[in-house]
Amino acid sequence: MDWISGIIDYVPANIGQLRQLTGNHLLQSVLPIVFGVLIAVPLAQLARQNRTLAGIMLTGSSLLYTIPSLAMFVFLPLVLGTSILSMVNVVVALTIYAVALLMRSTVDALTSIDDGVRQAAVAMGYTPLRRFLTVDLPLSIPVLIAGVRVISVTNISMVSVGALIGVPSLGRLFTDGLTRNYPVQIAVGIIITLLLALLLDLLLVLLERVLTPWARSSTTRRTRAAALDARTVAS
């Protein structure tokens, strides 16, 4: 197979470049996830408390979500004053998409928490902030992580698009491969992208297990897993 030997020859010969592009790629995919969660969770809590605000934020975010990434990558330098080649543009664009997607599911997750649980926390004298951080938030982690898993997979694929306007990422292998008429290079890029997506997804599954120890025990696990299953399928 010349494909396999081509790939086997290509990787060691370009390992330095591959490592650097993979690093850039990971950075541009992971940072938006972190920022997205940090922004979406407080916004979702605000939206849950104020219906008007919720309407505005959900409409606004779904409108932003509709704007294609390539257009967004081109526009953001105008708004942010960054260079068009800057990774900041990609990170900001993907953060916007992440917030848009996460906010909706987080609002639903927070709303779906059993009211009895919440009232129990109030009865035990929890302040609203403490209740949010120790009761509401942990209970919505499965939904939050389901959303984050969707975002991580799509981000890893989307970061490549930045290469079209010159932002360094694994997408560089696609653009170079096309101009040099070298399919092996493109195939290597696709394989590394797939591996990154798989790796990140596994880490998120592990993270969920660590963060939701109660879900691992006894019978609740089975029902919860079934509920989550439907969700993952939908994603």
């Binding site: 294609p68 998409y97 997607l101 969707v150 997979v153 989307m158 969700r231 939908a234």
Partner: peptide, 12 residues
């Protein structure tokens, strides 16, 4: 609703 939201995946 959640199924709809999460079915939306991402734009590229």
């Amino acid at each position: 609703q959640e199924a709809v939201a999460s079915a939306q995946g991402g734009t590229t």
